[in-house]
């Protein structure tokens, strides 16, 4: 069984982004970019399934600008076998990405598609579900445990009240939550090996997908600033402030 793992290049999670002064977006020029943390977990899970022998090939896919090749090389250094870049300079929204992935699913026929549950830049949490809908596959979102047995996959999911377990018939779409696994560090020899792995570049037109954005971003602003707080010397002063000044208890 093949596994397809979509990965996204995003602003590194430690960077505190700045909103551009003209309100057109956030400033990502000269900012450190990395693989979306949830996608690292997805790649790790796919590679572990391969190490267990239930998966034969792990294909990493990224959609976006040419620099996404670096993200794909990282995925290959973790253990993905080959990469596919769908290259475009157009702004890609989740629906467009889901359509691009759907075209690749039709071509590659993977048994599982493992995505991150959300990207930490647009915070949408849509692509996996949309892909499942377009490809008419079952979905298990927010996975914290994945077990493949024959043509069934059992997934434990993190939901609001606790955990829930589903059984899906493959092919299926899974999105990862934080506690699914601990992604491994890439080692230098593996980074070197990843450079030799196959990386194909295709265009959205080759896949017959129209990626025109459906949502227009009118403006991006900074969130309202909180007023400066005060430090209190002791617990008594804190209780006094909460009771008499803030009046919240």
């Amino acid at each position: 069984m093949k596994v397809l793992v979509p990965v996204k290049r995003v602003v590194d999670y430690n960077v505190k982004v700045r909103v551009k002064s003209d309100g057109t977006g956030v400033d990502i020029a000269n900012v450190k970019m990395s693989m979306n943390p949830f996608d690292e977990i997805a790649v790790e899970e796919a590679v572990r399934l391969k190490e267990k022998g239930v998966v034969t090939e792990v294909i990493a896919v990224s959609c976006g600008v040419a620099q996404c090749q670096e993200t794909l090389r990282t995925a290959m250094a973790i253990g993905a076998d080959r990469g596919i870049l769908v290259e475009t300079t157009e702004e890609l929204q989740p629906l467009a990405v889901a359509k691009l992935l759907n075209a690749l699913v039709a071509k590659e026929q993977p048994g599982l598609i493992i995505l991150g549950k959300q990207a930490i830049d647009d915070d949408s949490n849509q692509t996996g579900q949309m892909l499942a809908a377009l490809a008419d596959l079952p979905q298990a979102t927010y996975a914290s445990k994945v077990e493949v047995a024959g043509d069934k996959v059992t997934v434990a999911r993190e939901v609001d009240g606790g955990m829930e377990t589903l059984s899906l018939s493959t092919p299926a779409v899974i999105t990862t939550d934080l506690r699914l696994n601990e992604p491994r560090y890439v080692t230098l020899p593996n980074i070197m090996k990843a450079k030799k792995k196959q990386l194909d570049v295709v265009k959205p037109e080759d896949l017959g997908v129209d990626v025109t954005p459906r949502l227009k971003t009118l403006k991006v602003v900074e969130p309202a600033k909180r007023g400066a707080g005060v430090k209190v010397p002791d617990v008594a002063a804190l209780v006094d402030k909460l009771k008499n000044e803030a009046k919240v208890i």
Partner: peptide, 23 residues
Amino acid sequence: ATASGKNVAPRVAAKLDVAQISD
């Protein structure tokens, strides 16, 4: 925008061929 809402909404949007607006 709860675990179940976020699970279902994008599936509906994709089938309708519309973008979803999250959160």
